[in-house]
Design a binder for these strands. Structure first.
Lengths: 242, 242
DNA sequence: CGAAGATTTGATAACAATCAAGGCTGGTGG
DNA sequence: CCACCAGCCTTGATTGTTATCAAATCTTCG
């Protein structure tokens, strides 16, 4: 990794950002070189291992972050321990909710994750000055809202088999930043996490993966690795329209 | 009520907006008098009856609206007819997703609804000029995202009884703009819609309402009217924390 | 009053959860 | 290198919750 704080001569794009996966497509993409420089000064790169909590449920969240690499799960828990994953975030998604304090959820790395962490206050100040940034953050939130609502349909109305197929489709689609659906990929989640994402038990998840395998919809190389010979067929099993 | 399109002398707040329920708390609240005047010129008041579709699934959405009065359901449907309500919007919520085109869902009035309808393009233009408006819209979207994720927990991990109690709590909380939870209220939805909101069948919804009634958690005056003697008890039955 | 639609209630069936083993895999140490 | 252990995953048996099917009742409205 390049060192975080270098810049080349004429206040160009900071070197730390030049090759950054999360810049194009990510929120940083809207910033001018001078704004980027400003951000970089207050920014910390952080590497997080799987199962490490990034933000706790109910934290007064003083930081935001861009995911540079890896997958983060967002989850909510009931007092008795029942848990629901309410979002999976892949690079180059933005983490954290500037402008809103009250929404309690916890964020945890599920793979090795690289983050660019910013103070919330800085983002809020920059957003007030830069309409493009504000708008970019807004659009990202709208996309998350759309994804959340799609998932509500999955949770409320789909069968166990459809949910599992839907999950596999989602991972295939999002695991590779900015390519089409992957034909072959590693699941970022354990069976337990998949269950928590789908509102099922691990046993049911396991049985449905077995079923999809026996029906030839997927191949299972090992616990984590999945091959999808025909993405349309997977979509049909997930009751995904288009 | 005052008449809709008059203005008083010095380009003050348009009369149509002065007493508007949706202005304070709503997105219009951030607009200056002159911006409001601009908006009012391009705005249509619209009254919509129950079961009338406001936006169709997959429409290229050219309009947005503020809910002035009433309740709107947002829903998604699968090819085979299974349906899930993914959001209930009460006055003074904002409808529509400026800045994002692709999210397909349908919006339908569930009560008599009064709307202020704006061209999407106007909102986008104003938002680019007025950071406060952009920010206000962003915050509203963040709140909807938070609500959607809360509901994912309900759909994924709660029992039928908890879901119904959760729904009753939600209505009690939101039916009266800006008061505390109502002790007594009319359900805006039919049993069929409640079922579609909760990912259940109408029979199960009915049985759970009966159960909550028999246990004394609620009283049922008639099909629509509910009385909640003890809101804390209802929350406990819904497994809502605080 | 009668009819249509909405809601409730009852009986049964299906799907997923739970309880309980058993098997695989990856890591560790002999 | 192999054996063993722990954790994760799969499979099997059974139970329980909710869906489905069916009918009765209640409401509303002409």
């Amino acid at each position: 990794m390049t060192q975080p704080n270098q810049k080349n001569s004429h206040s160009e794009i900071p070197i730390a950002c030049v090759a950054c996966h999360a810049r194009e497509g990510g929120v940083c993409g809207t910033l001018s070189p001078s704004q980027l420089a400003q951000v970089v000064r207050k920014t910390a790169r952080r590497r997080v291992q799987p199962q490490i909590e990034i933000i706790g449920q109910g934290d007064g969240i003083e930081h935001c972050a861009a995911i540079v690499r890896g997958v983060v799960k967002l989850s909510k828990m009931l007092a008795d321990g029942r848990q629901q994953i309410v979002g999976l975030q892949f690079a180059p998604d933005f983490l954290g909710t500037p402008f809103l304090r009250e929404c309690s959820l916890s964020a945890e790395a599920v793979t090795n994750v690289d983050l660019c962490v910013f103070p919330r206050a800085l983002i809020e100040r920059l957003a007030a000055e830069a309409p493009d940034l504000q708008r970019r953050l807004h659009v990202e939130t709208l996309k998350k809202l759309c994804a959340a609502r799609d998932w509500m349909l999955t949770l409320g109305r789909k069968t166990a088999k459809e949910r599992v197929a839907n999950f596999l489709y989602l991972v295939a689609t999002r695991i590779n930043f900015e390519d089409g659906p992957a034909r072959e990929f590693d699941l970022p989640l354990s069976r337990a996490d998949i269950a928590d994402y789908l509102g099922l038990t691990i046993e049911t998840v396991s049985r449905q993966i077995t079923r999809l395998r026996k029906e030839g919809v997927i191949r299972v190389e090992n616990r984590r690795r999945i091959i999808v010979p025909d993405i349309r067929r997977l979509m049909k099993n997930a009751s995904i329209d288009s």
